[in-house]
């Protein structure tokens, strides 16, 4: 048919699947007459670590931020696929808790496209997976504030279906180390997902702002949380922002911006008050680290963004 006017025809453009719990599978039925299927399979991002709490004027670390997930894009002739496939979308890592707990951020989990709902993820049942290793969570300030690792690329070990189409795996981006001094390092996105920025620490009595996610292209600057109060002030550090995405993927809409998901920015520190919380990550991206605070009052990290699977067919 001659498509003279290029009018949106209202047909389903793609199908989008979101995380819905550990070991829970979605199903996708191959439409009649489709010839090619494209998959975008993204894992969950790592959570940010909690900020350290301790007495005023002491050295305290902000929480490290979570890394972003790896992913895989794939183009497969539909004839090579079964009529029904099973989809498991990875979850974002839990946020590290500040306060009295001071816990690390949790690692994200991988996303899978499988020929059967195999909770063991036996390699032979996997058509596509988002990576080999999931994105790591950032450590708490008490635990050195180590940055969350980047999700690593899928290496096809023991898989048998990876040869049936074009596969292009990609790695994520590492988070940022939480520090005691100076203003924490900000982060610039380097792909479609990004790690989080670190929470602010303190080495003395001067509170700091949290690390930011830098601007670029469609991405606005996402400032870290503001600095809180001094030793004699209980003003809390500001919370980081996060979960920026250029658009929320959906099944029917026309996207007008480039696809980008970013991590969360870090929480600000406070000498005499509660540290700010890190911002959450958008899909596949890392959470920001929590800011340092007074005793038992470090800020929480930001939660890692869930994974996502987008299937386009024609």
């Amino acid at each position: 048919m001659v498509d003279t006017f290029n009018i949106v025809d209202g047909s389903q453009q793609r199908q989008v699947y979101f995380a819905n719990g550990v070991n829970s599978f979605h199903t996708w039925n191959k439409p009649s007459n489709c010839q090619f299927v494209h998959f975008f399979v993204l894992g969950g991002g790592g959570g940010g670590g909690g900020g350290q709490g301790a007495g005023t004027a002491t050295a305290r670390r902000g929480g490290g931020s979570g890394g972003s997930a790896g992913g895989t894009v794939s183009l497969i002739p539909s004839a090579y696929l079964p009529d029904m496939i099973y989809i498991q979308v990875g979850s974002g890592g839990s946020n590290g808790i500040g306060g009295t707990t001071n816990s690390n951020g949790g690692a994200g989990t991988l996303s899978y496209i499988m020929v059967s709902p195999d909770t063991s993820k036996t390699a032979a049942n996997v058509i596509i997976q988002s990576g080999d290793a999931a994105a790591g969570g950032g450590n708490s300030g008490l635990n050195s504030g180590t940055a969350g690792i980047a999700g690593t690329i899928w290496s096809y070990t023991n898989n048998i279906f990876n040869d049936i189409g074009l596969m292009s795996p990609f790695a994520g981006q590492a988070g940022v180390l939480g520090q005691t001094t100076p203003v924490p390092t900000s982060i610039s996105i380097s792909g479609v997902t990004g790690g989080g920025a670190a929470g602010a620490g303190m080495n003395g009595g001067t509170a700091q702002a949290g690390g930011s996610v830098n601007a670029g292209g469609y991405i606005p600057t996402m400032l870290g949380g503001s600095a809180g109060g001094s030793a004699t002030s209980t003003t809390a550090g500001g919370n980081g922002s996060g979960a920026f995405m250029t658009f929320n993927p959906n099944s029917n809409g026309y996207s007008s911006q480039q696809l980008i998901f970013t991590g969360g920015s870090g929480g600000g520190s406070s000498d005499g008050g509660v540290g700010g919380s890190g911002g959450p990550g958008a899909y596949g991206s890392g959470g920001g680290g929590g800011g340092a605070g007074v005793t038992n009052s470090g800020g929480n990290g930001g939660r890692g963004g869930d994974g996502i699977v987008i299937i386009t067919f024609w």
Partner: peptide
């Protein structure tokens, strides 16, 4: 370079 259209801006 081949890209799914949903990842591209409108212009």
């Amino acid at each position: 370079i081949t890209v799914p259209s949903f990842a591209l801006p409108g212009q």
